[in-house]
């Protein structure tokens, strides 16, 4: 009898309609993309860039680790050694990233021993010429200058770099666990001393 009532009066459809009409009074979640943009977190893995030290010196030493770590083989580095007044300096003469191959895994940034590479929140660089997507050294430094804050933010968010010079954190260590360890160490030392 109950079943007959439900099938005769389309109760389940009325219930669903009531729920759907209720959504007219809920704040909409859609973003109208070109006009509205989502705020990206610092961790966002976007286009790559090269960074300089504050003195303006290039960070990259041309060690080729980014190339070795890359799973899609999209980085090409040519390095050189320069000797000036008995000061040896290694640097990259050319540094190309093929953005058409890049999979944005962030392994190169992870591998870089001097934090020369960073990732920005830049994602709107589509072009009609495919060759423009091979970023050379000049272009990468240009991006690095333009989005310096974002690249720094990425490195800090991924525990690659401390927020200031004094802070240095283990990459795979939860900060509080390190504190605990230090406390334990101090305790042990205190006991030994005692």
């Amino acid at each position: 009898m109950n079943k007959l009532f439900h099938s005769a009066f389309f109760t389940e459809i009325l219930k669903a309609l009531r729920m759907v009409f209720g959504h007219y009074f809920v704040k909409e979640v859609t973003l109208q993309y070109p006009h509205e943009k989502n705020t990206l977190p610092d961790t966002h893995r976007g286009a790559l860039c090269l960074l300089r030290y504050e003195s303006g010196e290039e960070r990259c030493v041309g060690c080729d680790l980014c190339n070795a770590a890359c799973p899609s083989y999209c980085i090409t580095v040519v390095s050189a050694v320069e000797e000036n007044d008995h000061v040896v300096r290694r640097f990259a003469t050319s540094f190309d990233i093929d953005m058409t191959k890049c999979v944005f895994c962030g392994f190169c940034v992870e591998a870089c021993p001097v934090n020369a590479l960073g990732m920005t929140k830049m994602y709107e660089y589509s072009t009609s010429n495919k060759r423009d997507l091979v970023f050379d050294k000049a272009k990468l430094y240009e991006i690095g200058e333009k989005w310096h804050g974002q690249a720094k933010g990425y490195l800090i968010a991924h525990n690659q770099e401390g927020e200031d010079e004094t802070v240095s954190e283990y990459r795979y260590r939860f900060p509080s666990s390190r504190k605990q360890e230090e406390e334990q160490k101090e305790e042990v030392e205190a006991q030994v001393d005692g």
């Binding site: 992870e110 021993p113 770099e161 401390g162 283990y170 990459r171 795979y172 260590r173 939860f174 666990s177």
Partner: peptide, 29 residues
């Protein structure tokens, strides 16, 4: 609380701050 990766020098990257100061860590890296 605790570590988020095992602390094995031949498996995971060494501590970031040590890479800049410690020779062995740099080699492992």
């Amino acid at each position: 609380e605790g570590l988020i990766a095992v602390d094995l020098p031949n498996l995971t990257y060494p501590p970031r701050d040590k890479v800049e100061t410690d020779m062995e860590s740099l080699i492992h890296h």
